[in-house]
């Protein structure tokens, strides 16, 4: 029984992006996100969208899969789009039906906002979740944040927690499915009734799920102890992170993209974004 949720799951591969240093990938995704927020004009967004397609092509992942991963966020995307279309005012009135007025600016704004959300997801999923193993990711994060250890921030502990959380997501999804089936077999009904009734129907799923998660946590803690885990002190790693010229080249490319976006904003300020 495989879960069909792809968001936040590593996809095996050996592309250029896969092989980048996870530390650099974290930095790159931050840079890319900053770049996305810098973009204001239609031209800048066109450029960004193009770069996103290139990025996806570089990873060798199927765009359909990335789109599927966005399904859970559909509501937010639709909500912001509708919000922008109806509330935004501008100069070019397109439709006027009583109190409802739709402006061209509103539509463009909505499209750009959607693009921004989609690009943000693409950036983080392409750089991080799809192409970096969760362990490499937390490893990278741990090393990036290592200086904070001096301030007594429990960096290793956080990264360990994240590793374990990521490791158990698919396991718990499977378990949820099993419990749901078990409750359905006893006549539980999850699909009818009003919102309150449906929420109530979830209780018999959540309680066994939580109990089992705590039991798992307890067993895992014992297993980790038996494998001599004593915290971050004195630990070595099998895979040591090394940045290569490729990483720096990638950083350069993303910085150039950022500069291009700023320039596009300045020199081609076609329908600027107002949010």
């Amino acid at each position: 029984m495989k879960s069909d949720i792809t968001f936040g799951q590593y996809v095996e591969g050996n592309s250029l992006i896969h092989r980048l240093d996870p530390r650099m990938k974290i930095v790159l995704s931050i840079l890319y996100i900053v770049t996305i927020f810098l973009a204001k004009s239609v031209t800048a967004f066109a450029l960004l969208t193009l770069s996103a397609f290139l990025l996806i092509a570089l990873t060798g992942l199927s765009p359909a899969m990335i789109l599927r991963g966005m399904r859970p966020l559909l509501f937010i995307i639709v909500f912001t789009a509708v919000f922008n279309i109806f509330w935004m005012t501008g100069d070019t009135l397109l439709i006027s039906l009583g109190p409802i007025k739709i402006y061209l600016e509103g539509i463009i704004n909505a499209v750009l906002i959607i693009l921004r959300i989609v690009l943000l997801i693409v950036a983080t999923s392409v750089f991080l979740t799809y192409t970096t193993t969760p362990l490499a990711l937390t490893d990278g994060l741990e090393q990036l944040l290592a200086p904070l250890k001096k301030l007594h921030v429990p960096v290793h502990e956080f990264s360990m927690m994240m590793t374990i959380a990521l490791r158990f997501i698919p396991t718990l999804i499977d378990e949820t499915q099993k419990i749901m089936n078990a409750q359905k077999a006893r006549g539980a009904d999850f699909s009818t009734g009003n919102l309150l009734q449906r929420a109530k129907a979830l209780i018999p799923i959540l309680i066994p799920l939580f109990i089992s998660a705590f039991r798992r946590a307890d067993e895992l803690a014992t297993a980790m102890e038996c494998r001599c885990y004593t915290g971050g002190e004195g630990r070595t790693r099998m895979n040591v992170l090394r940045s290569t010229p490729k990483d720096w080249a990638a950083a350069f490319v993303v910085l150039v993209l950022g500069a291009a976006i700023v320039l596009a904003n300045l020199y081609f300020p076609l329908y600027g974004l107002t949010l």
């Binding site: 590793t163 494998r227 004593t230 099998m238």
Partner: peptide, 26 residues
């Protein structure tokens, strides 16, 4: 329970977990 003793999301990294805890060189 085979599920509750595997720490890492990649097989070889899980196998390495114990050795990493012992501080063995990479």
């Amino acid at each position: 329970n085979p599920d509750n003793q595997i720490v890492a999301s990649i097989v070889e990294e899980d196998v390495a977990f114990g050795c990493e805890n012992l501080g063995i060189p990479s």
